[in-house]
Design a protein around this nucleic acid. Sequence first.
DNA 1: TATAAACAATGACGTAACGTCATAGTCAAG
DNA 2: CTTGACTATGACGTTACGTCATTGTTTATA
Lengths: 253, 253
Amino acid sequence: MKEYTVKKLAAIAGVSVRTLHHYDKTGILRPFKRTDAGYRVYREKELLKLQQIMFYRELEMPLNRVKVIINKAGFDMVKALENHKKCLTERNQRTKVLIRTIDKTIKSLKEKNAMLKDEELYEGFSKEEIKAIKKEVKEKYDPKMVKESYQKVAGLSKPQYDSLMKEGEDIAKEMALLLGSDPAGEKAQKVIAKHYKYLHNFYKPNPEMYKGLGDLYASDERFRAYYEKFGKNLADFMKDAIYVFAGAKKGDK
Amino acid sequence: MKEYTVKKLAAIAGVSVRTLHHYDKTGILRPFKRTDAGYRVYREKELLKLQQIMFYRELEMPLNRVKVIINKAGFDMVKALENHKKCLTERNQRTKVLIRTIDKTIKSLKEKNAMLKDEELYEGFSKEEIKAIKKEVKEKYDPKMVKESYQKVAGLSKPQYDSLMKEGEDIAKEMALLLGSDPAGEKAQKVIAKHYKYLHNFYKPNPEMYKGLGDLYASDERFRAYYEKFGKNLADFMKDAIYVFAGAKKGDK
DNA sequence: TATAAACAATGACGTAACGTCATAGTCAAG
DNA sequence: CTTGACTATGACGTTACGTCATTGTTTATA
């Protein structure tokens, strides 16, 4: 059984010794054992785990989230690898968009008649969008869903993201127009069905989760504030309508 | 002429207002003007410049270096864009290696007879290597060369990098063996010629630059320390031999 | 066996690039 | 005039290590 101390592992993995210390201290990656002298010793299992950490870091997942994910009972390494592959492929697609942006900018600079729209200058850059998405999702949806949502929307372009966010707003506006009506009424239930379907953009909801979300809308200050922008006590109305819908949905199942 | 204040520019570029403030404060991206009220106003030139900054950041270039590069007289935007394209293409290649690593790891996990060598777990990850390269280059070469060197070696795999670094060490060792002999002697000059050729891995040297490097070797504490590891006052000896070689080289030119 | 170099540990301050929030002035529309 | 959106500056906080100091441990060589 092959064992590594910090320098050897750092060398083959291409990380620093300091990083390994940091990971041990923060509990993200513990060594297999410590020698009597206090030396950290790592084995195959730790090497695989470090690989996971490195993939998550490559995809800019914050360490405190990585820690939760990979140390959870039932963590499926193969599934995680498949997900990393998907995200990396999407990143490569985005990089191709960046390269196209470069080509278009060069053409625009060289030929005075090939003007770019200002927005076109930044096509493919999505850092801030992702952050905005994460914040938006966090504010509007169950925090447990944040990670999954992140993975699902990371590949969106800005126009796609804008469109998605606008759809969410439109649904909220539609509900606001029905304030004062019966949350179990046909109209409200039609819009809520649309909302439920909309959530599929972020994660795969089920009736129980949807009810939990309704609770969250009504009880969490940030959610209330978000919906208040569209109508007075809209969060409560959403919750009521969600409960009706989710009850019916459960019956379906 | 279209003008933007911070929120509008932040929105189309996908950065935060805070980022624009930060860039202004640090002098990386100044606005076109300030209104009487103190509002920042940006125009086309600033938009193009921001695009540059964003490409450099995408490629993880530190801001203080970005500042120097793009604010230099004669900064060639088209050339820079072409260079970004090259780097992004290389990054995509590296991502493909990562994806292959994923495939191999999955196969290894699913089929117990498809064992991976430990090093194979980390193929494609290069962050620490790049950092090490930057540090190494910084320690051994003219700081002005760092950016160019970074671009030139970024695509190296770890074995390629290791090989390259070893070659550098071997040359230093060879010179150390000649300590005490004539720096203008045939043997020393033969090794120095090898050193000059070796530098081509990092940048395109010329005799004047090479002499400057010799000066740096002898005067900079880090360089001296590096060469001291191989032999007493090796840095001085290198400088002397470099001066002879560069003089002869100049004559060639 | 002694020594020196390489490897290891812990501790702690510092860094880069913003993020977050507080406070207050400015602008535009109703 | 009022209100909400936009703007400014200031300042503390965050994340993921980097850097360095100090000291113990291991290994190879003379």
